[in-house]
Write a protein that binds this DNA or RNA. Structure first.
Length: 564
RNA sequence: UGCCCGGUGGUGUAAUGGUAACACACCAGGUUUUGGUCCUGGCGUUCCAGGUUCGAGUCCUGGCCGGGUAACCA
């Protein structure tokens, strides 16, 4: 088979990179960066960008910097810096010694600002923010030049220096690039480079009272770090001419800005501002609420870094906005967890079951396979006795067709244990089933009948005397519609919060092997799904499990169809 | 309303002028001590109209539709 046939197709960014390398641009070097603003927690949309940038560097033997774009002191906090570092590390990426901050370049940026003023390409403007907007014109109306546009170089130099020294109040002056006030591209209508902000910065303290704007700062940051390919999202497309203009005007190292479509996910919102609102308004318990699409939320929910990276690879990279199906994310996490999660038995909604012909005092240790996908995971012993718990919905007195579970008079298998037959149903005064009486076949130990007879159903169980109590939290999608932000009638996205996104089960019974389970431990509760010991709320003696994702459930599908 | 970008199954992507393909989802079947996993099969796609070409999803023109854009935010 030829090399070519096996070659995976390239996305458009890889094509650009390979073309550049073939042409010997930057001597074939690839250097990217992930540049978060530390004003919120990272979410799965950021994961896409992180995997893209770090992944590209890895693929082409290059480097990727982690750089905090901390140019706006009033919005940014150390807490966010810490969480971002933790999240990217957890995702499995390494920036080596290149933990960088835009704020470390403030002095150099200032020098370059002076250079631009000297070149007659920037000026100090005394217009207020409101006036600046007025002069800028509109989408259809060209702007007009600021009355301060033709100040002399000397005056500009003097004023800019005094801006830095703190002689002027907030908002009284700006440094602006002198480009084209009538440009059809609004970004080129003499954009602001520096604003006066007497605010302490989380890293530079009160060293500065002027702070650079994004358009001015970002290209410089990339240039200073020798970034070859500066990858950002689509909304910066219109900013690219400005990115290029600054770098050309300064005649410094010139990275290439490339824009791609940000990730949208069905049934959640991926916007730092909205996520912050959900946290502040207590619709969720915090940034790491397992329902949140944040990295920390997904980590707590039980997602693995591998599955998130796999997802980011599968969704691809394009130049048009798309909304990815949650089913793909769930597929990725199931695929990884299926290979790696030990199987255990846990009863979420217990129903008492007594085996009448099993001796009162008897107790057995039965062998159970830890992971059928991984022989090296070995086996464990599970205690069995006369009184068990099974799942309430594994018994139906009057079952529909195709129901293979327990019903009166039917024989089923208890996983890894025995065949049992239900002989009697005990109900309370309201007619609710409260206990099942059964008989077992002692010859079926382990779950096989020596006479070769088969049973249709296998159900899980926990020995009542040995069971460990646990709380289990089931999660569902946070919103009831695919695009909570895009309602046709303009309804607020909060309208679509799913009231049933969290269900807490407090009387669950799990097998004793889970007794000392460490926070963060991932398991599969057989026939239910993948669960993770909660890293905040679980304690020895008071286990709390989060459901990461349910197993595919073809019985539920049959049921659903039947009910229609 | 100006400017910029983009339209391929239900969803996400591939095909780089030469048989429209892959994954998810969905449907049907097989295996199974998890109604899981795994295996087999099926479903279904180039926004529209012209043009160039032996040949167009791909190139050109026009239209339609969608997104972005008027912070001293990033």
């Amino acid at each position: 088979m030829s090399e070519n046939r096996n070659k995976k197709s390239l996305n458009f960014i890889e094509e650009i990179i390979e073309t550049d390398r073939a042409a010997g641009k930057h001597h074939g070097r690839v250097h990217t960066r992930f540049p978060p603003e530390p004003n919120g927690y990272l979410h799965v949309g950021h994961a896409k960008s992180i995997c893209l940038n770090f992944g590209l560097a890895q693929k082409y033997g290059g480097k990727c910097n982690l750089r905090f774009d901390d140019t706006n002191p009033v919005k940014e906090e150390q807490e966010y810096v810490d969480s971002i570092i933790e999240d990217i590390k957890w995702l499995g990426w390494d920036w080596e010694d290149r933990l960088l901050f835009a704020s470390d370049y403030f002095e150099r940026m200032y020098e370059l600002g002076v250079q631009l003023v000297r070149a007659g390409k920037a000026y100090v403007c005394d217009l207020s923010a409101e006036e600046t907007g007025l002069y800028r014109g509109t989408l259809t109306k060209p702007g007009e030049g600021s009355p301060f546009r033709s100040r002399s170089v000397d005056e500009n130099l003097d004023l800019f220096e005094r801006m830095r020294k703190g002689e002027f109040p907030d908002g009284s002056r700006t440094l602006r690039a002198k480009i084209d006030v009538a440009s059809p591209n609004m970004n080129l209508r003499d954009p602001v480079m520096y604003r006066i902000l007497h605010a302490p910065h989380h890293r530079t303290g009160d060293t500065w009272c002027i702070y650079p704007m994004y358009d001015w700062a970002h290209g410089l940051e990339d240039s200073i770090e020798g970034i070859t390919h500066s990858i950002c999202t689509l909304e910066f497309e219109d900013h690219r001419p400005l990115y290029d203009w600054f770098l050309d005007a300064l005649d410094v190292f010139h990275p290439q800005q490339i824009e791609f479509a940000r990730l949208e996910l069905a049934y959640v919102v991926l916007s730092k501002r909205r996520l912050l609102e959900l946290v502040e308004e207590k619709h969720v318990s915090g940034w790491d609420d397992p329902r949140m699409p944040t990295i920390s939320g997904m980590r707590r929910r039980g997602y693995t870094p591998e599955s998130i990276r796999d997802f980011c690879e599968r969704i691809g990279v394009a130049k048009f906005n798309t909304r990815v199906d949650m089913a793909l994310l769930e597929f990725c996490v199931r695929a990884h967890l299926n290979k790696t999660s030990p199987r255990v038995m846990g009863v979420l909604d217990p129903l008492r079951l007594v085996i009448d012909n099993y001796p009162e005092e008897k107790e057995e240790q039965l062998d159970a396979v830890n992971n059928p996908e991984d022989e090296s995971a070995g086996t464990r012993k599970v205690p069995f006795s006369r009184v068990l718990y099974i799942e309430k919905n594994d018994f139906l007195e009057d079952p529909p067709r195709k129901f293979h579970r327990l019903t009166t008079g039917r024989e089923v298998r208890l996983r890894y244990a025995y065949f049992i037959t239900c002989t009697k149903v005990i109900k309370d005064e309201n007619g609710n089933v409260v206990e099942l009486r059964c008989t077992y076949d002692p010859n079926t130990r382990g779950g096989d009948a020596p006479d070769g007879r088969k049973v249709k159903g296998t159900i899980h169980w926990v020995s009542a005397a040995h069971a460990v109590d646990a709380e289990v939290r089931l999660y569902d999608r946070l919103f009831t519609i695919e695009n909570p932000l895009g309602d046709k009638d303009g309804a607020d996205y909060r309208t679509f919060l799913n009231p049933n996104s969290l269900e807490v089960l407090r009387s669950c019974k799990v097998e004793p092997s889970l007794t000392g389970a460490e926070p963060g431990t991932r398991v599969q509760f057989e026939r239910h799904g993948y669960f993770c010991v909660d890293i905040n709320d679980s304690a020895p003696g008071a286990l709390v499990f989060n459901r990461t994702v349910a197993l595919r459930d073809s019985w539920a599908k049959i049921e659903k169809k039947r009910k229609r």
